[in-house]
Simulated assay, not measured.
Amino acid sequence: MTDVKVCGLSTVETLDAAIGGGATHVGFVFFAPSPRNLSFDTAASLAARTPDHVRRVGVFVDPNDEMLEHAVQAGRLHAVQLHRTAPQRVAHLRQRTGLETWAAVAVKTRSDLDGASDYAGAADRILFDAKTPMDAALPGGMGIRFDWSLLDGFRHRMPWALSGGLDAGNVAEAIRRTGAPLVDASSGLESAPGVKSVDKIVAFLQSVAAS
């Protein structure tokens, strides 16, 4: 059974859809430029509604220590997911929080995959995500996918997850193609940027369950 994270949740209805549909992880975004950004108060209310068997993951872009600590407390986080964060910084934040730590690696070419080895000993899991354009405001959540064949024959040295442009229509293929132990979707489950769709969440989780 593939684990599945529904990321960028911001409302009770969509959180309930994710939990009810069998998501193993839910993602709360703490990054001001993102349309999915949560206030600490909203994160706290959603966290209180999330059963502890569902892992709460906070999503950050190279956060400072103080902001990260506030978010961890508000969101009652089990894990932190770090984008655009250097390995040494990831190691520092992992030690500081004591939480499971994911490092996002942006992928466009096979050589990008090699960056995952830099996080050995610094992170607990690698999240392979599609590389966004250099001038993009967001490091993820833009509906871009990378060529999954790049993962063919790649030797994973750490637990990992697959992200980038996943939705109900392609996630089963993604799992078959890559063998991903965990899949992560955000923009593919939205009706507009930052607006999750209950129907799309349900369909996505059904596709994962049937794969």
Rank of each mutant, 00 (worst) to 15 (best):
T101L: 06
R76K: 15
L68N: 02
H78Q: 06
W102V: 14
A48C: 08
R76A: 12
V57T: 13
H70V: 03
H92T: 12
L77I: 07
N64Y: 07
L68Q: 03
A79E: 14
A48R: 13
L93D: 14
G58N: 09
A86C: 03
L77H: 00
F60K: 07
T97P: 12
V61A: 12
E100V: 10
Q88W: 02
V54M: 08
V57L: 00
R94W: 09
T85S: 13
L93Q: 11
V80Q: 04
R96N: 02
Q81S: 08
N64L: 01
Q81T: 10
R55M: 12
D52V: 06
A71N: 03
P63V: 04
L99E: 02
A91V: 00
F60L: 02
T101G: 04
T85H: 09
N64D: 15
E100A: 06
V54G: 09
R96M: 12
T50E: 03
V90R: 11
W102L: 15
A103P: 12
A79R: 11
H70E: 14
Q88P: 03
D62G: 04
H83S: 01
F60Q: 02
E69T: 12
G98E: 06
R96D: 01
H53F: 15
L68K: 00
T97N: 10
R89Y: 05
T50G: 08
E100F: 15
T97Y: 06
H70T: 09
V54N: 11
P63I: 03
A79L: 10
D52F: 02
A103N: 11
T101R: 10
Q73M: 08
R55H: 12
V59R: 07
V72Q: 06
V57G: 01
L46I: 02
L46K: 06
T50N: 03
M67C: 00
R76G: 13
V90C: 11
V90E: 08
A91Q: 14
A71I: 05
D65H: 04
R84S: 14
R84T: 01
L68A: 10
P51H: 09
Q73G: 09
V80F: 00
L46F: 03
E100I: 05
Q73S: 15
A48V: 01
H53A: 01
V90S: 08
H92D: 13
V80W: 03
R96C: 00
A74L: 10
